[in-house]
C-alpha cells in the first residue's frame, strides 16, 4: 500500500515538474521528487543509494539548477503545436508500456552474482558488500567514474573564458549575516559527518561518494559566505586536490602490475588499509571537483551579468 502511494507520488510530482508554467516552481518540485526518491530507495533496501540520492541527486543537482535558473531569460510555457503534444504523449506512453511489458515478462536470472559476492566478501578487506563491490570487485568502474568527473571538470574549464583566473575563488558572494553565523555552527558538524560517512563505509552504509558530497556542500556554503584562502594559494591547492584522488587510485591500481598481477589487484593482507587510503583521497577529490563544477557555473553567471 505504502509502495503504491510512493509510486503515485513520484509520478504526480514528475508530471507537475514538467507541466508547471513557472520554472522556479518546477525546480522546487524536482527537488521534492528527489527527496521522495530517497524514501523509495530506503523501501528498496538500498540505504547507500538513499544517502547518495539525498546528497548528490537532490542537494548538489538542486544547487546547480537553482543557480543556473537565476541567469536564464524567463519565459512562460510556450504554446506547443498539437502534433508535438501528441507525439510526446504517444512516445511517453509507449515507452512505459513496452518497459512494463518487458518487466513482467522478465526471465529468471541465470547468474547469482550476490552468492559469489557473499562467498568472496572476506577476501575483499571490508565487510560492507557495496563498498566491496565499488572499491574491490568492480574497482574499474570507480576508477573510470572519478575519471569521468575530472573530464567533466576539464570540459567545463575549456568552455569557460576566464579573464581573471586568479579572482575565481575570492570575494564575498552573499552578504547574509545569518548564513555566516549559522555556518560557523554547521561547518564542524558537516566535516564530522563527512569523516563519519567515510569511516562507516567499511562496514555499514556510507562511503567516499556520500562523504565527498557532504564535503562539497560545506565548500559551497563557505564559498557563498565569501570565506576563501588567498586566491593564488587556493588555485594551486585546488588543482592538486582535484587530481589527487584519481592519481593515487591509478598508482595503487597499477602497482600490482609490477608484481606481475593484473590491474587493480590488491595484496590481500593490506586490502582494507589500501581501500581506506583510496577512499580518503577520493572523498577529498570528489568534494573539490563538485565544488569546482559549482564555482565554474557560478562564475559564468557573473560574467554574463
Amino acid at each position: 500500500m505504502i509502495d503504491l502511494l510512493l509510486v503515485c507520488g513520484l509520478w504526480s510530482l514528475a508530471l507537475t515538474t514538467l507541466l508547471t508554467p513557472n520554472a522556479f516552481r518546477a525546480l522546487v518540485f524536482f527537488i521534492l521528487l528527489g527527496l521522495l526518491l530517497t524514501l523509495v530507495w530506503i523501501r528498496l533496501d538500498a540505504p547507500d543509494i538513499a544517502l547518495a540520492e539525498a546528497a548528490l541527486g537532490t542537494g548538489i543537482t538542486g544547487v546547480l539548477l537553482l543557480d543556473t535558473l537565476k541567469q536564464q531569460p524567463q519565459h512562460a510555457l510556450l504554446c506547443v503545436h498539437r502534433t508535438r503534444i501528441f507525439w510526446a504523449v504517444f512516445s511517453g506512453l509507449s515507452l512505459t508500456l513496452a518497459l512494463s511489458w518487458a518487466l513482467l515478462q522478465a526471465p529468471a536470472m541465470p547468474i547469482a552474482l550476490d552468492q559469489t559476492l557473499t562467498a568472496q566478501l572476506d577476501a575483499s578487506g571490508v565487510s560492507h558488500p557495496i563498498t566491496a563491490v565499488l572499491l574491490n570487485f568492480r574497482a574499474y568502474d570507480t576508477l573510470l567514474e572519478i575519471g569521468v568527473l575530472l573530464l567533466a571538470l576539464f570540459a567545463g574549464q575549456g568552455l569557460h573564458e576566464r579573464q581573471h583566473p586568479l579572482e575565481q575563488l575570492s570575494g564575498a558572494q552573499l552578504h547574509n549575516p545569518f548564513l555566516r553565523a549559522s555556518l560557523a555552527l554547521w561547518l564542524p558538524g558537516m566535516l564530522l559527518l563527512a569523516t563519519y560517512l567515510l569511516w562507516a563505509g567499511a562496514h555499514q552504509p556510507g562511503g567516499a561518494f556520500q562523504a565527498g558530497a557532504v564535503l562539497a556542500a560545506a565548500f559551497i556554503l563557505m564559498h557563498l559566505c565569501g570565506l576563501a584562502l588567498d586566491a593564488q594559494v587556493s588555485q594551486h591547492l585546488l588543482r592538486i586536490g582535484v587530481l589527487v584522488g584519481f592519481v593515487l587510485f591509478l598508482v595503487v591500481a597499477s602497482s600490482s602490475m609490477l608484481a606481475g598481477q593484473t590491474l587493480l589487484t590488491y595484496p590481500s593482507a593490506w586490502a582494507g588499509e589500501l581501500i581506506l587510503l583510496i577512499e580518503l583521497a577520493l572523498t577529498f577529490s570528489i568534494g573539490l571537483i563538485l565544488f569546482s563544477l559549482f564555482t565554474l557555473n557560478h562564475q559564468m553567471r557573473k560574467e554574463s551579468a
Binding site: 513520484l10 509520478w11 514528475a14 514538467l18 510526446a88 512516445s91 511517453g92 506512453l93 515507452l95 518497459l99
Partner: peptide, 9 residues
C-alpha cells in the same frame, strides 16, 4: 518504467 515514460514525454 512510468518515470522513464514521463521523462521522455
Amino acid at each position: 518504467a512510468g518515470l522513464c515514460g514521463i521523462g521522455l514525454f
